[in-house]
Simulated scan of single mutants.
Amino acid sequence: MRIVIAEDSVLLRRGLELLLTDAGHTVLGAVDTAPALLRAVAEHEPDLAIVDVRMPPTFSDEGIRAAVIVRSQNPGVRVLVLSQYVEERYAGELIADRSAGLGYLLKDRVADVDTFLAAVSDVGSGGTVLDPEVVAQLVVRSRRTDGLDRLTERERVVLGLIAEGRSNSSVARELSVTEGSVEKHISAIFTKLRLSQEDTGNRRVLAVLRYLESDIRSL
């Protein structure tokens, strides 16, 4: 995989570069500022950008704001964000844009080499890898369950199965119905939850987040 790294810590940046190279990836650039990241992405058109949230000059949210720009301007580039904490606003914006080819891990996970390399592989292949703490905080932040009470019993069952990670075909087999019926139920769920029609993959993530929040509140 062709990768660009944006990390202001020299030691961590170099460590990531060596780790990824040893794993068989090609590091096209390793930079320490958000503007340098944007230039590197434009120049190299990598498969994946690994981005630190806090970067110069203010060490607040420059990195993740740059990640949002990369996702917007370079849809073919996957993004894996590394952070010491959850930047809720921009994490939500990244997911709302589209969920495919996106990862957000707390830096504690980087200490587990196998977990980190698996995340790099998953995100680089177009998957979504979100740290459990990121999901938890986004669920709490959203506080939006409007629409769930409008779902039929069958629609809630379908949404529950989706929350388990089931595919449409798996849901169809579980309920002994056709995939077409499942697709109709899912379309009705999106409509009742008032979710955008722009990105089907992202709507599934947002629908699941609302479902999980409803379960948490009922405990």
Rank of each mutant, 00 (worst) to 15 (best):
R203E: 12
Y211W: 10
T26D: 13
L38H: 03
S121C: 06
T152R: 04
S99W: 01
H25W: 03
L138N: 01
L38V: 08
A136V: 09
P132V: 05
R54F: 03
L138C: 07
V27Y: 04
G63K: 06
V10K: 14
T200P: 00
Y211P: 08
A136F: 06
L19K: 07
D131F: 05
V110L: 15
T115H: 03
E62S: 09
S167I: 09
T145S: 13
S181A: 13
A188P: 06
S72T: 15
Y85F: 12
L28W: 00
V120I: 07
L148I: 15
L37A: 05
T152F: 03
P57C: 05
R98T: 08
G24Y: 03
T26M: 04
G124E: 03
G124W: 00
L82N: 12
D97R: 14
E183R: 13
I64G: 03
L82A: 08
V53N: 05
R173I: 01
R144Q: 12
L209T: 06
S167F: 02
E45D: 12
T115M: 03
D131S: 13
V68E: 15
E174Q: 12
D8Q: 15
V113S: 14
I95F: 06
L159I: 07
S218W: 01
N202T: 12
L38W: 05
S187V: 04
H185T: 08
D47V: 13
V51I: 13
T178F: 07
A111P: 00
R109W: 10
R210H: 10
T128R: 02
R78P: 04
D215Y: 02
S167V: 14
R143I: 06
